[in-house]
Amino acid sequence: MDVVSGKWKVLILWELHHHGTRRFAELRRGLPGVSEKMLIQHLREMETDGLIHREVYREVPPKVEYSLTEHGISLNTALAALGEWGSARIQRIGAEKVLARAAEEAPSA
């Protein structure tokens, strides 16, 4: 659980899975609300854990790209079932709210 702890790690995995290789600024734009400090920290931890690959291009200005490793791809696959569960939960909760609102608005007999 340490590997995916933190608010942003799963979202970083999702972003890299769905958009492929990304530069830092692209990741930051794809994750509204993340601070630069937090994104850097999570990317470093994920690199250390072998989930992402950091490619540094020696050019001016420096260019750095992030991509998923095989280990990161396999973790994303394992998390897919949890994502499906979350989507179903959101739908269920939404349906419950609609039914509750309809019951409140129904005329009393």
Rank of each mutant, 00 (worst) to 15 (best):
G94I: 03
K7I: 04
H19G: 06
L79M: 11
L99Q: 09
A80L: 13
V10N: 02
D2I: 02
G50F: 08
G20D: 05
L16C: 00
A109N: 13
V98Y: 14
T69Q: 08
I52M: 12
N76A: 12
L39N: 12
I12C: 03
R58N: 10
E70V: 07
Q41V: 06
A102N: 10
W85V: 02
A25N: 14
L82P: 05
A100S: 14
L75M: 13
R44V: 08
G94S: 13
A78L: 14
S5M: 10
G6W: 02
I90K: 03
G33W: 14
E15F: 01
A102E: 13
A103C: 11
K37V: 07
L51F: 12
K97C: 10
L13V: 02
L99G: 04
T21Q: 13
A25V: 15
A103K: 11
S35M: 07
L31T: 06
E104F: 06
P62I: 09
E26T: 05
S87K: 09
D49Y: 06
V60Q: 12
E105G: 11
E104C: 04
T48P: 03
I40T: 15
N76V: 06
F24T: 07
R23K: 15
E55L: 06
S35Q: 05
I40G: 10
A80P: 03
R54Q: 07
A88N: 11
H18W: 11
R92P: 00
L68R: 01
A100D: 15
G20N: 00
E105I: 12
G20T: 01
E15I: 03
Q41L: 11
D2Q: 14
A100R: 15
A88Q: 13
F24V: 12
A109S: 14
T48K: 14
H19N: 13
R22Y: 01
H17Y: 08
H71V: 05
I73Y: 00
R44S: 01
I52V: 15
L79P: 04
V64C: 03
N76F: 07
L51R: 06
G6T: 13
G50M: 04
G33K: 14
R28I: 03
L13Q: 02
A81K: 10
Y66A: 04
E84H: 09
E45I: 00
E59Y: 01
E96Q: 00
